[in-house]
Amino acid sequence: MSSTRRPSKAVYRRRRLVLLIVCVLVIGLLIWGISSLLGAGGDERGGGPTSVSPSASASTSASAETGETPAATPTPTPTPTPTGPAECAAPELVVSAVLDAASYAADVQPQLSLSIANTGAEPCVMNVGTAVQVYTISSGADVIWVSSHCQTDPADEIVTIGAGQSIAAPPISWVRERSSLDTCGTDRADAVAGGAYYQLVVSVNGIASQPATFVLD
C-alpha cells in the first residue's frame, strides 16, 4: 500500500511567500486605481485654472500695486428748491409819484403819496417801509425839499406784491418849505409860490418814479 508524500517545510514557505507577494501586488493595484479616480474627479470639478472676471476688489488691488488712485464717482449736486417769491425789481416793478391835485392855492398844502405796481407774471417781495421811501421836490436843477433830510422813526415793512397788483402809501403833507440836513428843528425858508412849477419824484428801495409836475399859486 502506497503512502502520499507530504510537502516539505521549504515548499510551504515558498508558497506563503508567493501568496504574500500576490496580495501586496493586488493591494497596490487597488490603491493606484482609487488614486487615479480621485485625481480625475478633482480636475472635472474645477481644480484647473479658470477665467475670473475683474471685480471691484481686484481693481482696488491693482490700483494699490501701481500707485494709481481710483477715480471717484461724482455726487450729483441737488437742485435748490425755491422757497418763496423773488425780490421785486425793475422793470417789472413800477413806482409812481402821486399828487392829490395839479395846482395848489396859497393856503393849501400838497398831499404827496406813491404807488407800487407789480407788472410781472409772478408775485414778488419788497421792503416798502418809510425807511426806504424818499420824496424829492425840485424846481429845475434846484432841490427844494427831501423827505429823508429830517425824517424821524423810519421803519421797514416787508410785503408780498401779487402779479398785476398795486399798493399805495398813505399821503404825507408838504408844508411848502425848503429843507436841508442842517435845518432840522429850525425855521425854514418858504418855497416860492405865485405860479411856480415843481416836480415830485419818489423812490422805493432805489427804484425811482417818473416826475409828477404841480404848481404852487
Rank of each mutant, 00 (worst) to 15 (best):
Y12P: 03
R13A: 12
R14D: 14
R14G: 15
R16E: 00
V18R: 07
L20F: 07
I21H: 03
V22R: 03
C23T: 13
V24M: 04
G28E: 02
G28W: 05
L29N: 10
W32T: 14
S36C: 08
L38E: 04
G39Q: 04
D43Q: 13
P49Q: 08
T50K: 14
S53P: 11
P54Q: 11
A56H: 11
S57Y: 09
A58C: 05
S59M: 10
S61M: 01
S63I: 04
A64K: 14
E65V: 12
E65R: 13
T66E: 03
E68W: 07
A72S: 10
P74C: 03
T75H: 07
T75Y: 05
T75C: 00
P76N: 09
T77W: 03
P78M: 01
T81Q: 04
P82Q: 01
P82N: 07
T83S: 05
G84R: 05
P85L: 07
E87N: 15
A90Q: 01
L93E: 03
L93N: 02
V94I: 13
S96P: 09
D100G: 09
A102R: 14
S103E: 11
D107M: 10
D107R: 11
Q111E: 11
L112W: 06
N118F: 02
N118G: 02
T119W: 01
